[in-house]
Amino acid sequence: MIVYAAAFYVFAAMAIASGAMVIASRNPVHSVLFLILAFFNAAGLFVLMGAEFLAMILVIVYVGAVAVLFLFVVMMLDINFAELRQGFLQYLPIGGLVGLILLVELLFVAGTWVFAPEAGQIVSDRPSGSGGTTNAHAIGLVLYTKYAYPFQLAGLVLLVAMIGAIVLTFRSRDGVRRQRVADQLARGPESAVELRKVKSGEGV
């Protein structure tokens, strides 16, 4: 139990500290690296909860894919720090409002058992008889039966977002000579090579 508690406090403290460093560090690349550290510690907390499937998916999706692209973009950006800091006070009310709303929402989630005891069922909804099954089975049993439609809806939202991003950034240019690999491969020696008899002293 001591090891378990110690691991929890280490992961939790590291997650909060690196979360603070994300907004505190001066270098944006350092911010992203601290964000990755925060994701890792969140994954560690998931493992402690026994949700190893979620932990691995968190690392694969957020750290392995999303944060890489984040880092990619942040490294390529030419950010002017002085200009960035000028608008701090101007944006403070909006940022504070967003933070406040998130805090209130978190309090609502944490306080559901006071206001609506049955709402807690949503959070701790487990399939019946999931004693011996693994994480992945348990999630699949809920996700593809009870929450099948919300799950499909989430997929549609992502699809729309993807199409939107492509439509916004796509521009068709004329006169671009593209490589057509199929045409290249379909070319045989008959059409590509021509054998000519050249008389000496005359050239082609």
Binding site: E52, M56, V59, G64, M75, T134, A136
Partner: peptide, 19 residues
């Protein structure tokens, strides 16, 4: 239980050292 996912996660992290 999630050995494959663990391997996949670790191998997808390999890019960080390089970048």
């Amino acid at each position: 239980n999630v050995g494959v996912l663990y391997l996949f996660a670790i191998s997808s992290l390999g890019v960080y050292g390089i970048i």
